Amino acid sequence: MAPKTVLIVYAHQCSRSFNSAAKDMALKALTAHGYNVIMSDLYAMNFCAAATAADIKGKLKNPEHFLYAEETWIAWKEGRLSDDINEEHRKVAQADLIIFQFPLYWSSFPAIMKGWLERVLTRGFAYTLQNTYDNGLCKDKKAVLSFTTGAAESKFHPDGINGDINVLLWPLQNGVLRFCGFQILAPQIFWGPQQASPSARTAMLEAWQSRLKGLMDEKPLAFAPNDLFDLTSQAGFRLRPEVKEASASKPYGLTTGQHLGKPLPPNNQTKPPSST
């Protein structure tokens, strides 16, 4: 069998950062285990974060009312996307797994990585209006967020000052990657490495190294499947009445997002469902 391919999309400005060490650990460990590893080092590439008409070669369909998703969809079908987007499409197409390595900035991706997501997960290539979530065009690929925080883990507990990490992760994992169909593995979170001792940072990297051995075989996180929703009625795209009725007696909501006014299911965005 051909070796599996892993794409690392990496966003940090400094080669001496903890993120750089985590990226290097992934590259080394995965290569040692026989994976083909390819890289998008966004700062080194000077990757453009802005989604603009410059992403399209040739004439626009409607230059007076520029709609980025519509225009890039047409350009994708006609082979008129910019060279840098085409190159990233080539990498994503090869990848069985994508690792996003980054520092958490303002509770989200760094701007340069957000720009990669906006420009590379093009309509037509990663999703269509008919192909989202379970049917997203990336449904045969896996993805994992590997990131550092600037604060201790306790600040991201349900009673922590920064709020529940599961709530923070919902728009990143469900709203972006799951929308395009990716099977999302539990995030690799490096809690406050800047404040940690050298031995603690070493232990974080060693835990990542150990996890990388079996990463490709891990069970994905749980999301509400498409068939739980009414995808036909004009009210549309809401949980079917019988699903809500069946959930009425349960102590938790379905997911972090479809919580139904109940307590959130514990660790919904950070741990896969128990196999027991």
Rank of each mutant, 00 (worst) to 15 (best):
G261S: 02
A22G: 11
R119P: 12
K250I: 10
R178W: 10
E78P: 07
S15Q: 12
S274M: 06
L172K: 00
Y252W: 14
R240K: 15
W170S: 07
K28T: 12
A51P: 05
S197N: 07
R240V: 00
P63R: 05
K271W: 01
Q269V: 08
P273R: 00
W191D: 02
M45R: 10
A21D: 12
T5I: 08
R201G: 14
M216A: 11
A186Y: 05
C180S: 07
T256H: 00
Y133H: 11
A75S: 02
E64N: 06
D83K: 04
W73V: 01
D159T: 04
S107M: 12
C48L: 10
K91E: 02
K141F: 11
L60H: 13
A126M: 01
P266A: 01
P3G: 06
E64L: 15
Q188V: 07
H12T: 12
A196D: 07
T52S: 14
G236S: 04
S275E: 14
G58E: 09
W208L: 04
T122V: 15
D227M: 05
Q183K: 06
S197C: 02
P158V: 02
A151R: 07
D55H: 08
N36A: 15
G79F: 03
W191T: 04
A2C: 07
P220Q: 05
G115C: 09
F147I: 09
N267V: 00
A51F: 08
T232K: 09
D227G: 04
M216T: 02
Q188C: 11
L221F: 13
L185N: 15
P158G: 05
C138R: 09
N46R: 06
P3N: 06
E78D: 04
F100I: 07
L137A: 07
P273G: 03
C180R: 03
M216I: 14
A26T: 09
G163M: 12
N166S: 13
A200G: 08
P225H: 08
P265C: 00
A200N: 15
H12N: 10
G253W: 04
K114S: 06
K4Q: 14
G58V: 06
L177M: 00
E245V: 13
D164K: 03
L239N: 00
A93N: 00
W76Q: 07
Q209S: 14
N162H: 04
V176P: 00
H157I: 00
A29Y: 01
K91C: 05
S107K: 05
L104Y: 08
L67M: 11
A51H: 05
A200T: 14
D227F: 13
